[in-house]
Amino acid sequence: MNKDQVKGTAEKMKGKVNEAVGRATDNPARELKGDLQQEAGQARKNVGDMKEAAKDMAKDVKRHH
């Protein structure tokens, strides 16, 4: 797991909390902030996932040569 995956997952979790608190307190701005945080977190996690996949592919190529 790389730093983008970790930070992306953490951001998604913060977003879930903000969304839940926003709903519970009838605060649409906080709920929206949570939604946006989750999307940003997922995007960062996706970047990390792609980096890991590329690293794994590079290892496979080295093993086969």
Rank of each mutant, 00 (worst) to 15 (best):
D49H: 01
A58Y: 05
A58R: 10
A54W: 03
Q37R: 01
P28G: 10
M57K: 10
D60A: 12
R44A: 10
G34S: 02
A24R: 09
K7Q: 12
M50D: 09
V17H: 07
G34R: 01
T9M: 07
R63P: 01
L32S: 08
A43N: 00
Q37K: 07
A40K: 01
K59P: 04
K14Q: 03
K45D: 04
K59C: 07
M50N: 06
K59R: 10
A10P: 05
A10V: 13
L36W: 00
T25H: 03
M57Y: 07
K7V: 14
M50E: 09
K7P: 01
G22C: 10
K3T: 15
E31G: 01
T25P: 00
R23C: 04
H64N: 12
K7T: 15
Q42L: 13
G8Q: 07
E19Y: 15
G48F: 02
E19V: 08
Q42D: 15
A58Q: 09
A54N: 03
Q37E: 14
M1I: 02
Q38N: 02
E39P: 00
K62Q: 12
K14F: 03
G41W: 01
H64G: 08
H65A: 14
P28C: 05
T25N: 08
K33I: 13
N27R: 01
N18C: 15
Q37I: 04
G34D: 00
V61D: 01
A20H: 14
M13W: 06
H64Y: 11
T25D: 10
D49M: 05
K16R: 13
K62E: 14
K55A: 14
G41A: 07
D49F: 00
V6Y: 08
G48T: 01
A20V: 12
H65K: 12
A24I: 00
A43Q: 02
A29Y: 09
P28S: 08
K45Q: 06
K14H: 01
M50L: 10
D56E: 12
N2D: 13
G48D: 08
N2Y: 03
R30L: 14
A24S: 10
R23P: 05
K55M: 12
R30N: 09
G8L: 03
M13C: 03
D4A: 13
G22K: 08
K51H: 08
D26E: 07
A10N: 11
M13D: 06
E11M: 11
D56C: 06
D60Q: 10
D35N: 05
A43F: 02
L36H: 01
G15C: 09
N46I: 03
D26M: 04
D35Y: 02
K16L: 15
D26L: 07
G41H: 00
P28I: 13
E19K: 15
M1N: 04
A29Q: 09
D60G: 09
Q5L: 04
Q5N: 14
K59I: 09
R44H: 02
R23S: 12
A54P: 00
K62W: 07
E31D: 11
R23Q: 13
A29D: 14
V6W: 06
E39I: 07
V61A: 05
E39M: 11
E52M: 05
V47T: 13
K45F: 03
M57G: 02
E19G: 08
A29P: 00
P28M: 09
L36A: 05
Q37A: 06
N27Q: 04
R63Y: 08
K14T: 02
V61R: 01
V21S: 11
G48P: 05
